[in-house]
Design a binder for these strands. Structure first.
Lengths: 187, 187
DNA sequence: GTTCACATGTAACCGGTTACATGATTGA
DNA sequence: TCAATCATGTAACCGGTTACATGTGAAC
């Protein structure tokens, strides 16, 4: 599959970037749906260069610090476009360790289950608040967002991540209520 | 992390299972949130046996076919309980290749983007329908679900997967509408 | 002068997938 | 008798993380 390959080609779609820049994108909003460490990125950049999908020029930052700025080649642009327009099957599994635990809830007491769900709810609410702040910032800065906006991709990942977290929170609230119901019956 | 370790210990919580049985669980409803191939499961079962978390007895299916039935040891039960009650941080990234593409939408024409979203919407709706059928089946079979139901874990994964897909579908519908809006403006 | 961000790389290891390999049982 | 399912394993490879390793630049 080599998705990282396409992630890098995609990030280079608007112009040249360094390996460090690419790492930064994965730490920002795109990190909600894809990420990679610098230790994986640098070797991949080398591989993509060898394969002819990207090229680089070396620039100097200050007086000594070398930086490699990568650009898409025509072949790289083609490769990116082919991947973007290809239709992929949706994955059967999207791993979620918390949901794995939830499946084993019969091994927990009511109190233990309630603690687990309360903790998760707290963490998800914090994340939701972070995303809401990012969303408000985006909405404040730009003209009304549409397909033609340069920020449309950013808008897509933010709104999707927001919906994901909202759904998580309301599901957790619903289940927490169920766990605390009828505390008179069996443990 | 070794999450597969805990997934296996968890599946063994109610009694003995073979490696094949464990594989089957990952192909069923639990597969929405965790899965593993048999080529990973068999070596892990061996490792867990060596570590003293599980034991097995060999049974005969028919006249010749050998099957190993695994059970939790006391140490395995402890290990499972410790993991279940531990609070984990939520992951920063949950990978989604479609959303990675979405972030790069500026490299697609309106028509190409519309095609991509239409295809995804179709696939998500199919998945949602499958999950809805499973949910109706569960609701038809069992008494009203509560914390004490033996099927509560099953209920949790099904309802969560349903919410996830519903959210995906409604988000895709919303974005598809945005993509098709104002088709008089720039390409 | 110290801390934080910028900047790039490699090595060892681990988790997971694909492919290779084999055979028995059940039901149509 | 044929196909699907039951049943277990290994080997090669790949994607990703953690740790090791080094150095510059900017701002306080």
């Amino acid at each position: 599959m080599r998705v990282l390959k396409y992630a890098i080609l995609g990030l280079l779609r608007k112009g040249e970037l360094s390996g460090y820049d690419i790492t930064s994108y994965f730490k920002a909003e795109l990190g909600q749906f894809w990420s990679a460490k610098h230790s994986q990125i640098y070797p991949e950049l080398k591989k993509l260069t060898d394969e002819g999908f990207i090229t680089f020029r070396t620039t100097i930052q200050g007086t000594k610090l070398e930086k490699k700025m990568y650009t898409l080649t025509d072949s790289g642009k083609q490769e990116l476009h082919a991947w973007l327009t290809r239709h992929h099957p949706i994955p059967e599994t999207v791993k979620d360790e918390f949901m794995l635990k939830a499946y084993f809830i019969s091994s927990l007491s009511r109190q233990e289950a309630a603690d687990l769900f309360t903790d998760q709810l707290l963490k998800r609410k914090e994340k939701l608040a972070d995303l809401q702040r990012s969303y408000e910032k985006l909405m404040a800065s730009a003209e009304p967002i549409s397909f033609s906006s340069p920020d449309f991709g950013h808008y897509l990942v933010l709104t999707k991540a927001l919906e994901r977290e909202k759904t998580y929170v309301s599901w957790l609230e619903h289940i927490s209520a169920m766990i605390q119901e009828d505390t008179q019956e069996r443990p």
